[in-house]
Nucleic acid binder design. Structure first.
Lengths: 343, 343
DNA sequence: GTGAAAGCGCTAACAG
DNA sequence: CTGTTAGCGCTTTCAC
């Protein structure tokens, strides 16, 4: 089956006895073109169902008007929100967005970036996979002078502007809140502490515990694991089996927090009366279960928005001086029943 | 700031005293090329950090090896799952995927499609926005001989292959289940019944109620509204205020079902003892709240997978004969506490 | 097995 | 204001 050949500017030119460059100008609302021909051309374009071939235009202009985005997975509430912010802002400025999921897998992340480079995106926004240990692929982007921005997560060794949340500070607030509610022994479930976000949060928690005179040996439990649903349950069961005590569980993702809550309830441990539970990232489910779980609301949409703004600003100004700034957006402590001590 | 010019095949050719066409062949593992030059070229390509310009290649080949996907929003569990299925399958076959969100907005959907046509995608998979009433933009795709497939949702007036779930059948099963559990007066919260999915589900429910001798006037309540969280609460409050009775709420999305459940509980109405509640689509939250909500698990990943397979098969076979088939995948009735009558 | 040359569809000097 | 011309980087005949 032969594909029908799409209309080109040459077809329009021929139909109107014009030159294709005139057609191009008319279509792009070039200033030096007569109103009459502009209208003629646009009418004929519509009649012939002309759709510009953006590959050709971009090839010629060597700019794709496209932003590449690499995220771990779109199914996470935070990222789908961030993408909304990215898309809204980009579209408003006439840019398209290409989204790649790394699925928290370094190999895929590398492939994603190759694809984006090949399609000559004008800039890349990335929230690297947790497991990403090498950064050759990221430096490669910089070497090609493609503007690179980290958002939410970052790799310390790679020199690029970052748009982050105040993980350190909000983790402090969250820890302080638990202590204020009477927590004496905190059980923390964290992800890979080499990853920026978990490291920052853990540091905030540590500092706050120390300030409050906690004994870091006896008053803190830490479990480092992948922050998926199942692992919340597993962590709790382990601790329970070991017979260690704790009066608050702080999961660094809502999914582990929810899963922890469920096991506690199953085991007849009351939340928040016996053990308080808090999470991170304000997944929709955290507000819906009972008791509703205290969590941290992150400005996901705003992060996406700001990342694009910074990128576009950089693209316009061509100002390489501010290439390494760090913007930090405020998160919000969302206190719900699960951490309000009642007894 | 001048952007550094990326390496081209000409640069490689020059470095090796070869012709650029030879380089192109070497890079693409063309059969008629000596092993020696192939290796030379590939080595030099790596050394010069060559990344092919896919715009140029695609322009030349007038095929982008890209699949365009239009969905209402990625934040919905069903769609993010479907995208996973689409991406996995497409990547395995060397295709890229461009995702566009219509945000349930017809104007945006039209713009999305224009973008996809302009970027000369090889095919389009779409799950149209609920509000989409016109279909000029969809027929336009077909007129350009770009293969078009509906998945999950479809527009009857547009002639294209479809990959669907068995909404009609599973809605029947769900309704029957409620009746089996003793439901005598069913309150249904549906979305726009002009949309294929809701229409099919409602038809299934109607048929089952009739079969079971329900009086459609007195034993069925219907509220048609946008299926967002808030509207579940609102529907229930309205009915409650009107003083009408019902013993089961069937929300055609989990979000409205959950929201309905919450209000019922707030109002002191016990679920499932006084009123049963069921939803649709198996959002993660539906399993986490208590009581856990009966819902319909849809084969989202499989739908995405199959949609791509059908598209790629069509692209390969160039067989326009099977252009209008309908594939229907089986959903699963997930029965949970919220519909198990205990009294 | 490799080279020469044409051209995908578009834009942007440079003329006039 | 419009036409001419020359590519953007790549693939693909057609030669040899």
């Amino acid at each position: 089956m032969e594909r029908k050949k799409p209309t080109t500017i040459h077809d329009i030119a021929k139909a109107l006895n014009l030159n294709s460059s005139t057609v191009s100008r008319a279509l792009n609302n070039h200033p030096r073109i007569s109103e009459k021909t502009r209208l003629m051309v646009q009418k004929t374009a519509k009649k012939l169902a002309y759709q510009p071939n953006s590959m050709a235009a971009n090839l010629r202009k060597s700019s794709s008007k496209t932003i590449g985005v690499v995220i771990p997975r779109i199914s996470r509430h935070f990222f789908s929100q961030a993408i909304s912010g990215i898309e809204e802002t980009a579209y408003a400025e006439g840019y398209s967005v290409v989204i790649c999921q790394s699925m928290e897998n370094e190999k895929r992340e590398i492939r994603n970036i190759d694809t984006l480079i090949s399609s000559r995106v004008d800039g890349i926004l990335i929230s690297p996979a947790i497991g990403t240990k090498s950064y050759k692929h990221l430096n490669q982007i910089k070497e090609r002078d493609i503007p690179l921005f980290f958002f939410d997560r970052y790799i310390e060794e790679v020199d690029a502007s970052k748009i982050l949340t105040d993980d350190f500070k909000i983790a402090r607030q969250l820890a302080q809140h638990l202590i204020d509610q009477g927590c004496k022994k905190m059980a923390v479930i964290t992800g890979d502490r080499q990853a920026s976000i978990y490291r920052d949060r853990i540091n905030g928690i540590y500092e706050t515990l120390k300030e409050n005179g906690f004994n870091m040996e006896s008053q803190l439990l830490i479990k480092e694991t992948e922050l998926i649903y199942e692992n919340g349950e597993q962590a709790i069961r382990e601790w329970l089996k070991q017979g260690v005590e704790f009066d608050a569980v702080l999961g660094l993702s809502d999914m582990v927090a929810i899963s922890a809550l469920k096991v506690l309830q199953e085991e007849g441990i009351k939340v928040p009366e016996d053990v308080m539970v808090a999470g991170f990232s304000n997944e929709p489910a955290s507000a819906l279960i009972s008791p509703a779980i205290t969590t941290v609301g992150q400005p996901a949409y705003e992060i996406g928005q700001l990342a694009v703004k910074k990128l576009l600003h950089f693209l316009k100004e061509e100002n390489p001086m501010d290439a390494h700034e760090i913007a930090i957006l405020k998160s919000e402590l969302i206190i719900r029943e699960s951490t309000i001590r009642t007894k």
